[in-house]
């Protein structure tokens, strides 16, 4: 397809997101979009998360800079919103904790002095949602993680790259999915 297309919002669990550290661009044009490749081979430019906002804090010095922690069944996402994400920052200000939130955002990475890569989410929007939407998200993320795991040994470019870089333990991620699905039962 020629011209513009919208980047799809991937569904990834917090644990997998935390264990991701490979960023790259498609092509070497300076305007090429940036991607984060996860251990199961999701090529992420945009992500959709529904989880529980458990903490929020203004960590800015001069201007407001909000940090939120959003938990899912496998861990938590760090979400940072400042003056360039005015709507998301505003939503964080107004939001009570805990609350179910739906977040659309871009992955962002930071390399520490000793070479560790920390991942966080730069939100485009944050909205309060209900518990059912959150459970449906867990199911979707589980399904899509399984779909990626099933393709991991195939010859898709993202899968090949993920295997080469992370050499992921498939059982480890199957376990993660299992744990996430199991957690849904507690609220049945």
């Amino acid at each position: 397809m020629a011209g513009y297309f919208r980047e799809v919002a991937r569904r990834i669990f917090a644990q997998e997101f935390r264990e991701s550290n490979l960023t790259f661009k498609d092509g070497d044009d300076q305007y090429a979009p940036q991607y984060l490749l996860t251990p199961t081979g999701a090529k992420v430019n945009r992500m959709f998360i529904v989880g529980t906002l458990t903490e929020k804090e203004d960590i800015g010095t001069d201007s407001e800079y909000w940090r939120g922690r959003v938990s899912d069944p496998t861990g938590s996402f760090m979400v940072y919103a400042g003056q360039y994400q005015p709507e998301a920052a505003q939503a964080l200000v107004e939001c009570e904790t805990p609350a179910f939130v739906a977040i659309v955002g871009k992955p962002s990475t930071y390399t520490t002095g000793d070479g560790n890569v920390l991942t966080s989410v730069r939100p485009e929007s944050i909205q309060v949602v209900d518990g059912n939407t959150r459970d449906m998200w867990v199911l979707d993320a589980a399904k899509q993680t399984m779909d990626r795991l099933n393709l991991l040994n195939g010859d898709g470019a993202d899968a090949v790259k993920a295997v080469e870089h992370y050499n992921p333990d498939v059982e480890h991620y199957r376990g993660m999915v299992k744990q996430a699905l199991e957690s849904l039962k507690e609220y049945q």
């Binding site: 459970d135 399904k143 299992k178 849904l184 049945q188």
Partner: peptide
């Protein structure tokens, strides 16, 4: 949105030995 039907379908899909 009966997610239990889907959860169980997904578990089957994951293979009985695992789940």
């Amino acid at each position: 949105n009966d997610i239990w039907i889907r959860v169980n379908a997904l578990k089957k899909h994951m293979g009985n030995d695992q789940t």
